[in-house]
Simulated assay, not measured.
Amino acid sequence: MKIALIATEKLPVPAVKGGAIQIYLDAVAQIIKQKHEVTIFSITHPDLADNEQNNGVHYVRFPEKQYVNSIVNYVKDASFDVIHVCNRPLWIKQIHDASPRSKLVLSVHNEMFANEKISDAEGDECVSLVSQIVTVSDYIGETITSRFPQAKSKVQTVYSGVDVNKFHPAWTKEGSAAKKNVRQKLDLANKKVILFVGRLSKVKGPHILLQALPQIIDKHPDAVMVFIGSKWFGEDNINNYVKHLYTLGAKYADHVRFIKFVKPSEISSLFTMSDVFVCSSQWQEPLARVHYEAMACGLPMITSNRGGNPEVINEGKNGMVITDFENPSAYAGAINSLLNSSNKCEQMGRNGRSVVEKGFRWEHVAHNLQTVYENSAKL
């Protein structure tokens, strides 16, 4: 089959500037190309060609301002069997009109069917035109079917994944070497490292973790909280919120590290060098992909009870869920309980690694998507 994968207009593919959707598309394309002809559409980037064949995948890139119209013009004559649109239900009508014989699959990675993002009429039309809607979590699926019940037969959860060959737990030879090397570079040898990875945005809750820090230091004077991320993907500019975080962090200079944007290809060793991973999201997170990466590196996880995040947590087995998600003391208590027991940390980490190996590899994601494409093509 000829399959088109359409990224959003935000970031390029491959994920040279990061982005969960961009990582997702490029990873699954490398597997799906073994059976099908795959084209990925994304926005242009100075370091990437506008049109190229790379490792068996065709990449087509258009400027952001002309992005959707350019894709519509392209698919008119391309005769794709299946067109997979990421996270943009409002593009479905245009693409259907341009290529009415193609089967359309929509993947939904955020609450794109919320009232403020799509009208009843637009949502109804989108649901009627697509063959299948895949979502990154049950939570996101429910945000669609609760408003558009007619979508139930078309909605299916396809969880994201991770390359387990690129993320190494500290108990492996590669992981042990990476942990030692990174800790030496960051002057973190013999420290207890608590890791946050994500945009430095209020909805991600890094300020709450900083507010929890005094209670952690009191029990674990050797604890260091490491924040990896910037205010937006691939950008290291700071805004007032990030300045506020830096000010909070400066009060505990020996216990806080800020590391700005890190390329996805370089992030694995920073997970590996840590002891505990924390996701403090305050918004209804669809299901942050950092959960898969933390598990792949054998880290015990602490996450907020927001959106789809708890769906990958088996409480007490591979992580802990914070229901009092706005309360710094709740995070401090959970972090301290893990730092109190290295055996507990390791067992949770090993359980998490087992979870991703069994169900959240990119091979699992690609297989599930291929089944969706092949079934759609038969309709």
Rank of each mutant, 00 (worst) to 15 (best):
K117D: 14
Y246R: 12
D236T: 04
P206C: 05
H168R: 07
N165M: 10
I43N: 11
F271M: 04
A4S: 01
K378G: 01
V278P: 07
G161M: 06
N237L: 15
S107G: 08
K219D: 01
H58I: 07
F261P: 06
G349Y: 01
I217R: 03
L25D: 11
I259K: 12
A4C: 07
L299Y: 15
V162C: 06
N87P: 02
N240V: 11
V108P: 08
H364F: 10
R199P: 06
K358W: 03
D187L: 10
I216W: 02
Y241E: 00
E125S: 03
N318D: 13
V226P: 06
Y24R: 07
I313A: 09
G316S: 06
K263R: 07
S201C: 05
K103Y: 14
I322P: 09
L209P: 05
K317F: 11
L379T: 11
V226G: 05
G18N: 12
G175Q: 07
E116M: 08
S128F: 07
T39W: 02
V105T: 05
I31G: 09
E9N: 14
T8V: 01
S269E: 15
V82H: 13
F80E: 13
R183Q: 15
K173N: 00
L379S: 12
G18A: 03
S376F: 07
V68L: 10
I259M: 12
V16M: 10
P214D: 13
Y59Q: 13
G308M: 09
V372G: 02
A121C: 03
V356R: 13
S102V: 00
A7R: 11
I217D: 12
D97V: 03
Y59H: 15
P89G: 00
V16R: 14
Y24P: 04
G205E: 07
I32F: 02
H244K: 09
I6D: 10
A98D: 13
A330F: 13
S265A: 13
N343S: 14
N54A: 10
G319V: 00
L339S: 06
S107L: 02
G298I: 03
T247R: 11
N115K: 04
E346V: 09
D254M: 14
H364Y: 13
K180A: 01
G56N: 10
H58L: 15
N314D: 12
K260A: 11
I23Q: 12
L188I: 02
G18Q: 14
V355G: 08
K35H: 05
Y246H: 15
R61C: 05
N87A: 01
I267L: 15
S269P: 04
H168F: 12
V72L: 06
Q284L: 04
I217C: 08
L299N: 11
Q211K: 14
N314G: 09
N336G: 03
H364G: 10
L210A: 09
G349E: 15
N110A: 01
A212D: 09
A253W: 08
W362M: 15
K192E: 01
R353D: 00
I118N: 09
K192M: 07
N181Q: 14
I335M: 08
G352M: 08
E285N: 04
P328M: 07
A178Y: 02
G308H: 09
H255R: 01
S329K: 15
G307C: 05
V312N: 11
A49Y: 14
K192T: 01
